[in-house]
Write a protein that binds this DNA or RNA. Structure first.
Lengths: 143, 143
DNA sequence: CGTGTATGGTTCACATCATGAACTAATTTT
DNA sequence: AAAATTAGTTCATGATGTGAACCATACACG
């Protein structure tokens, strides 16, 4: 069961596209001395308001210790804060400070703008198709 | 010029897909104690035979110092070697040792297999369409 | 020819990132 | 009440990414 040339080509360009997409986060952060991970975390938080550490870890596919350090660094820079959950006192929520929110909105806007710029190279029929296709590809991953 | 809901959804799932795709490299490497970057580098080299540092840097979007360190670590593990170019004595080529080649083939096979597995969730008509679409999206990036 | 400039890499210092192991504290199970 | 699970932190370690300073080779051109 060998891979066809078409599969190989598609695979290669999918990898290239993936890099390109994720690089948008680094680029958006560079001007503010934020790393890709920091931008991704802040974007993930801002669209949700506040997020539990565990959920954020699953979302970003990070060990809890990695995430803890990541949040540490953002907290040290005054961009995020931790809050204890009164109902489950083991749990902590991550949210953004006002400065963090400001920055997150800016970078989030920049990323989505570039992403939309990319998407809009396609005629809208292809956009809808791509949308369905990507959903199919990701269907079994996030239950 | 606001983004539509459809654009936002597509953007989000594109990011998720990108993560998923690149995670394949980490996964393929884990069993051999190779990191994502190491697997990517080795895959990039093996499909080309040998690569100049500068080209590899452009390919992986890395500063030359980052790349130099990355190659250092692979060389230390006996997986890659540097060769001076006799025609341009400033230039160095990176290639894989036999052990490196062995490992690279294995991980490359694993990544492409999973990628193909992903791709084959789509009917072949959609595969061809996706192929064209991804090429369109990446058209202006690599001249 | 020689002098300047561009190119290709390395080295270094520094901050970030990722992980596993060991640990604490709170919650749930039994 | 004891045991097991869950949520996070801390720590040590190695990998990653960057810019600056640096060296050597190649090239341009007066």
């Amino acid at each position: 069961m060998n891979e066809t040339v078409e599969e190989a080509e598609l695979a290669t360009s999918l990898v290239a596209l993936s890099h390109h997409v994720l690089q948008l986060f680094s680029c958006a952060g560079r001007a503010h001395k934020l790393t890709q991970q920091q931008v991704e975390l802040m974007c993930a938080v801002i669209v949700r308001g506040r997020v539990r550490m565990t959920d954020l870890g699953k979302l970003m596919v990070l060990e809890k210790s990695s995430l803890s350090n990541l949040v540490d660094r953002l907290e040290r820079r005054g961009l995020a804060v931790r809050t204890r959950d009164p109902d489950d006192r083991r749990a902590t929520w991550v949210e953004l400070t006002s400065e963090g929110t400001e920055l997150a909105m800016r970078t989030h806007r920049e990323v989505t703008a570039r992403l939309d710029g990319l998407i809009n190279r396609l005629p809208s029929k292809d956009q809808r198709r791509l949308s369905a296709v990507v959903r199919t590809l990701m269907a079994e991953e996030n239950p």
